[in-house]
Design a protein around this nucleic acid. Structure first.
Lengths: 126, 126
DNA sequence: CGTTTGTTTCGACATGCCTCTAGGTTGACA
DNA sequence: TGTCAACCTAGAGGCATGTCGAAACAAACG
């Protein structure tokens, strides 16, 4: 991992390490933007947003690909591609158990994105 | 009118109308995903994420394009293009006053996205 | 009225993304 | 061991996006 420009890594973020103040408090540094933008980008597709929702809301905290694929009118490989995108963004993790692959949400990064967008009413407008 | 699944518009969201439960509570409907994905997509670029941050954190709640452009090593038209993307996503609004154009964040939609990503510790994991 | 300054639009090109089909890999089971 | 099911990877086609330079538009000012 050579692109260590920022002192923060995706692993840190997934682990829930705080990254920065909310977007409305201070201008975020370029390194942070470069690190978090891919996560937002991954959520920028309706299919992936629904996949993320199904994974995050799954009972037991995980869900099988075999339960995800039939929920869409898309081919298996296409769903697999979207899951890979979510995986590479650090939003989910995958684990193979026997025949099936189970996906699990990564609450740390989700919380980071949420806190970044949080608009605090007490944020000074001046 | 407690269960609004599809009859929601971007205007509603920008105005701060609640759209749905957090992503980790229930699977979001396809209509909601189609409505919110463009907003995440708009934030999925490092330049736009920084622009959004500069706008949202601007003192006075607004900022001039003439203050945004010099902050990047990109051409004016390119910055304008990114601002248009944020505008069309409903994340910011623009107003021309004299020579300059001022941009202002749209806290309603930002709050929607934040609440969607919020992970409640009390979310049942089983 | 013409010039200057700030901002957006237009046209073009390179790159990236979404989707598919085809094929490969992994694991279960007779 | 052979076969089948589940899942992923590879490659291609078509469309969208990011970026630029040039030009158009808008407002202020002399």
């Amino acid at each position: 991992m050579s692109k260590q420009t920022a002192a923060l890594t995706l692993t840190d973020l997934s682990a829930g390490q705080p990254c920065c103040a909310p977007i409305a408090e201070d201008r975020i540094p370029a390194e942070t933007a470069a690190l978090l933008a891919p996560a937002f980008k991954a959520l920028g597709d309706p299919v992936r947003l629904q996949l993320m929702s199904m994974i995050a809301s799954a009972s037991g905290g995980e869900i099988c690909v075999c339960d995800l694929t039939p929920a869409f009118t898309l081919s298996g490989p296409t769903i697999s591609h979207h899951l890979k995108t979510l995986r590479e963004a650090g939003l989910v993790t995958a684990e193979r158990r026997g025949t099936w692959v189970y996906y699990r949400a990564q609450p740390g990064l989700m919380a980071q994105l949420a806190s970044l967008l949080t608009v605090d009413a007490s944020v000074p407008v001046g």
